[in-house]
């Protein structure tokens, strides 16, 4: 029985990890783009982006998942997500990327805006280009400042991936829960908890290492 459960949970876990990783791959850069948009001096750019961030952060991810998955089919009578498991996974990924890039963008914005204007001006009077000022002076200071809030958010993402089950993405809790019905046992659910603990534990260690690595300077 243990082997069967482990195999089934590993399958679910694979989906969890895939959703987690792909969300990060797309949401980390997209969040930066959105944060630039939310700081754009042009109102016509800034206001809609801030509105989007407000809507996404102000409503439950669960709701966003449902709307994004079912919305297109019902509103425009188009199945934009494709069929079957992969279609549902794709819809979930889009919802997660949208949601997390808005959260990340606010963390980036806080980090970027916390850099004193004197850092930019010092770069300017030395004749640096805007690009060099951002990449050679500002970026590492921003990274140092955002590692703690980012690690919080990313560890939350590990657990949030379980919400994808609401549109029948077979992640690890789905796999664990199926044994309640089929075999009348609860321990596979605790077992899924162990997966989460190990995964978030590893991430915690990783973020600690990054913080240590950036300890050599003080912002």
């Amino acid at each position: 029985m243990f082997i069967t459960v482990t195999q089934s949970l590993l399958e679910g876990f694979l989906t969890t990890v895939k959703l987690f990783t792909l969300t990060l791959v797309f949401a980390l850069p997209l969040g930066l783009v959105i944060s630039f948009g939310s700081m754009n001096p042009l109102r016509i750019v800034r206001i809609p982006i801030r509105f989007l961030i407000w809507v996404i952060r102000g409503t439950p991810l669960l709701l966003q998942l449902l709307v994004i998955y079912y919305g297109p089919g019902i509103i425009i009578h188009q199945n934009v997500w494709g069929s079957g498991d992969s279609g549902r996974f794709f819809a979930a990924l889009v919802a997660f990327v949208l949601n997390y890039s808005c959260y990340f963008s606010e963390i980036y914005r806080g980090g970027i805006q916390s850099i004193p204007v004197g850092q930019y001006e010092a770069g300017q009077v030395l004749g640096l280009t805007r690009t060099d000022i951002f990449f050679r002076i500002v970026l590492l200071q921003v990274i140092k400042r955002i590692v703690p809030p980012m690690s919080n958010e990313i560890i939350t993402l590990v657990k949030d991936t379980s919400l994808a089950r609401v549109i029948a993405v077979y992640e690890i809790i789905w796999s664990g829960q199926s044994f309640i019905k089929s075999a009348g046992i609860i321990w596979p659910l605790f077992y899924t908890g162990a997966f989460y603990l190990v995964f978030s534990g590893l991430l915690t260690v990783l973020f600690h290492a990054i913080e240590k690595k950036l300890d050599y300077f003080v912002v």
């Binding site: 850092q119 001006e121 010092a122 009077v125 004749g127 640096l128 002076i137 200071q141 300077f217």
Partner: peptide, 20 residues
């Protein structure tokens, strides 16, 4: 502007060294 401003250097009251 970058070319022109290099005629001048500026030392700030608050140093503004790059911490990293």
């Amino acid at each position: 502007i970058r070319r022109k401003r290099l005629h001048f250097g500026l030392v700030f009251q608050s140093f503004n060294l790059f911490p990293q």
